[in-house]
Amino acid sequence: MFFFASVGVRKRKLIKHHAAEIFTAVISGALFSLYSTALVGRLLALNPSLTRAIIPRCVTVALALPIANLLEGSNASLTAAAVVLTGLIGANFTQTCMDRFGFRDPISRGMATACSAHGLGTAALSGKEPEALPFCAIAYALTGICSSVLCAVPVVRESLIALAGTGAL
């Protein structure tokens, strides 16, 4: 029992020590995800309503649906499908990609997995890389919160809608 308590204390100290990097990575990851999805949808000439529906693809479904409503992406089925597909792809390929590119740090691996593959990525990481799990779980929660807050800011919301384009599904 003492071993598990001491591991928890060490992880808390490590998290506190890296708090600035964690918050910077989460905010950057959330902004990148939201804006890159809107931009790619625009570049691929997707219907603007479809693009707005898939913008919150990197957060859990429970948070993606209200974000899509804020962005006037009213098709909840498309939003949910984009979130699930993103999670499946991320859960299956994130660790392999990080291995290929030489990312070995558990903090980076946990943060990258959560920011790109939300809950499914966190679940996939939990069995294979327990040392990265605390950072993954924190990034998972903070990315959802950060994305929700960002999309509630009128200037961010309006810029995402404008980047996705106007039109109806």
Results as ranks from 00 to 15, higher is better:
residue 99 D to F: 07
residue 101 F to H: 05
residue 103 F to T: 10
residue 103 F to R: 04
residue 104 R to A: 15
residue 105 D to M: 09
residue 105 D to L: 11
residue 106 P to M: 06
residue 106 P to K: 06
residue 107 I to C: 02
residue 107 I to L: 15
residue 108 S to Y: 06
residue 109 R to L: 07
residue 109 R to N: 05
residue 109 R to C: 07
residue 110 G to R: 01
residue 110 G to A: 11
residue 111 M to R: 01
residue 111 M to Q: 00
residue 113 T to R: 04
residue 113 T to L: 08
residue 115 C to H: 00
residue 115 C to Y: 00
residue 116 S to M: 14
residue 117 A to D: 00
residue 117 A to H: 06
residue 117 A to N: 10
residue 118 H to F: 05
residue 119 G to D: 04
residue 123 A to P: 02
residue 125 L to E: 05
residue 125 L to S: 03
residue 126 S to N: 11
residue 128 K to W: 05
residue 129 E to W: 06
residue 130 P to A: 10
residue 130 P to N: 08
residue 130 P to R: 13
residue 131 E to N: 09
residue 132 A to Y: 00
residue 132 A to M: 07
residue 132 A to I: 03
residue 133 L to W: 01
residue 133 L to A: 15
residue 134 P to K: 04
residue 134 P to Y: 09
residue 135 F to Q: 01
residue 135 F to G: 00
residue 136 C to P: 03
residue 137 A to S: 15
residue 137 A to M: 13
residue 138 I to V: 13
residue 139 A to L: 04
residue 140 Y to D: 11
residue 140 Y to Q: 08
residue 141 A to G: 15
residue 141 A to F: 13
residue 141 A to S: 14
residue 141 A to K: 02
residue 141 A to L: 14
residue 142 L to E: 01
residue 142 L to Y: 02
residue 143 T to W: 02
residue 143 T to M: 12
residue 143 T to R: 01
residue 145 I to E: 03
residue 145 I to L: 15
residue 146 C to M: 13
residue 147 S to A: 15
residue 148 S to K: 02
residue 149 V to M: 13
residue 150 L to T: 06
residue 150 L to D: 06
residue 151 C to Q: 01
residue 151 C to G: 09
residue 152 A to I: 06
residue 152 A to F: 12
residue 152 A to R: 10
residue 152 A to V: 05
residue 153 V to Q: 10
residue 153 V to P: 04
residue 154 P to A: 12
residue 154 P to G: 07
residue 154 P to E: 10
residue 155 V to A: 14
residue 156 V to S: 06
residue 157 R to S: 13
residue 157 R to W: 06
residue 158 E to M: 11
residue 159 S to H: 12
residue 159 S to T: 14
residue 160 L to A: 09
residue 160 L to W: 08
residue 161 I to M: 14
residue 163 L to A: 08
residue 163 L to M: 15
residue 164 A to P: 05
residue 165 G to I: 03
